[in-house]
Amino acid sequence: MMSVSALIISFLLLCEFSMGRGSLVDDLQSSDTSDLMARSVWAEQLSLSLLPSYSSPDHQMDPNMCVQLLREFANNSADLSSCLAGMAWPVRVCQYCYKEYQQLKATMTKITSPLQNSSTLSCETTLLRSDRVQVIVALNNFYDDLWTDSKCSNCINKNKTNVLDSTAAFMKLFDELMHCFNSTKGSTAPDQHGNFSHVCQMCNVTYKNLSDQYTNLEHGKHLCIDLEDAMNSTRNLWSRVFNCTLPCTDTIPVVAVSIFILFLPAIFYLSTYLHSDQRKRKLILPKRLKSNANLAHIQDKSN
């Protein structure tokens, strides 16, 4: 049952509303925006204070706690949005925005978890389910979807406190390659193009190391949007801007295997022909014909 104080407050509010409805409308029309905001906040806090009156006095929820968590979520959301927008190009959201994302998730955990000195009461119903749009839930789902689509978990350690060593090593090698591009792109002679240019010759080893490391990270499922964007931009510069190609060191084995496969049918048929049993047909005379021939031979001798 409701407490006596809650019943008195509700009764006074109903009396004031029924007796001075016209004056209340006039006051609302004549008041400014700040006054309306103050009244709305007061009304929200009053409604929050009346909600837990159905439970025991020892488990009453403090509305100021929910307001504080709401402000904390708003600040975390603003910090994360600012970081994501600032690191959108070139894409470095996973490396530089993981702290803001973890702070937002920590605040969301506080909202859904029971408050202090209570095992059941929380701000989840008040902040997450009190409105039809569910603004906080929509914002939280948006950040989760963005983080999942970017595969940022692949570049952050299990404790979610720092980037992986493999990610840092890849970005360090990427910075070295960009430095090589910037320092050698202006020293190419006009008659040097493609692999004969100074950029392709000087940066070939670094580019190959970066490409091999990217392949290893791809096989180990340690790629995120930061590494994918860095490698895509690198390949675009290497092939389209500088017209470089990565020389293949396995040319001779590939050619040998191709020639062997090409002549494999001929070798098969030749070996089959040589190892097959070619039996010659032998003419076998019938016994009757053989006896007649012997008789004719004897008669010749007698004559």
Results as ranks from 00 to 15, higher is better:
74 A>C: 10
74 A>T: 12
74 A>I: 09
75 N>T: 10
75 N>Q: 11
76 N>Q: 06
76 N>H: 03
77 S>H: 04
77 S>D: 05
78 A>Y: 07
78 A>L: 09
78 A>T: 06
80 L>T: 02
80 L>D: 05
81 S>P: 09
82 S>I: 04
82 S>Y: 04
83 C>Y: 11
85 A>L: 06
85 A>F: 14
86 G>F: 11
87 M>A: 08
88 A>D: 06
88 A>H: 08
88 A>Q: 11
89 W>F: 13
89 W>S: 05
90 P>N: 04
90 P>I: 08
91 V>T: 11
91 V>F: 13
91 V>H: 08
91 V>A: 06
92 R>C: 06
92 R>V: 02
92 R>A: 14
92 R>L: 14
93 V>K: 02
93 V>Y: 00
94 C>G: 06
96 Y>A: 01
96 Y>D: 06
98 Y>A: 00
98 Y>P: 03
98 Y>E: 00
98 Y>F: 11
100 E>G: 04
100 E>Q: 14
101 Y>R: 01
101 Y>F: 15
102 Q>W: 08
102 Q>K: 08
103 Q>C: 10
103 Q>A: 11
105 K>E: 15
105 K>A: 11
106 A>C: 05
107 T>G: 07
108 M>Q: 04
108 M>L: 13
108 M>S: 07
110 K>V: 07
111 I>F: 10
111 I>L: 01
112 T>P: 03
113 S>A: 14
113 S>H: 15
113 S>D: 14
113 S>Q: 14
114 P>W: 01
114 P>Y: 01
114 P>R: 00
115 L>Y: 12
115 L>M: 12
115 L>R: 05
116 Q>W: 11
116 Q>R: 10
118 S>Y: 15
118 S>Q: 11
118 S>P: 14
119 S>I: 07
119 S>L: 12
120 T>N: 13
120 T>I: 10
120 T>P: 06
122 S>R: 00
125 T>P: 07
126 T>D: 08
126 T>R: 01
126 T>G: 01
126 T>S: 07
127 L>D: 08
127 L>M: 08
129 R>E: 14
129 R>N: 15
129 R>K: 12
129 R>A: 08
130 S>K: 03
131 D>N: 06
131 D>P: 00
133 V>I: 11
134 Q>T: 05
134 Q>D: 05
135 V>E: 09
135 V>W: 14
136 I>Q: 02
136 I>R: 01
136 I>T: 04
136 I>Y: 15
136 I>F: 15
137 V>H: 03
137 V>E: 07
138 A>G: 08
138 A>M: 12
139 L>D: 03
140 N>R: 02
142 F>N: 02
143 Y>F: 13
143 Y>V: 03
145 D>H: 13
145 D>S: 11
146 L>A: 13
147 W>C: 00
148 T>S: 07
148 T>M: 09
149 D>V: 09
150 S>D: 13
151 K>D: 04
151 K>N: 12
151 K>Q: 05
152 C>Q: 01
152 C>M: 03
153 S>I: 13
153 S>F: 13
154 N>M: 06
155 C>M: 07
156 I>Q: 04
156 I>S: 08
156 I>V: 13
157 N>M: 04
157 N>H: 08
158 K>L: 03
159 N>P: 00
159 N>I: 03
159 N>Q: 12
161 T>F: 04
161 T>P: 13
161 T>Q: 05
162 N>D: 15
163 V>A: 03
164 L>D: 04
164 L>A: 02
165 D>S: 11
166 S>G: 10
166 S>L: 10
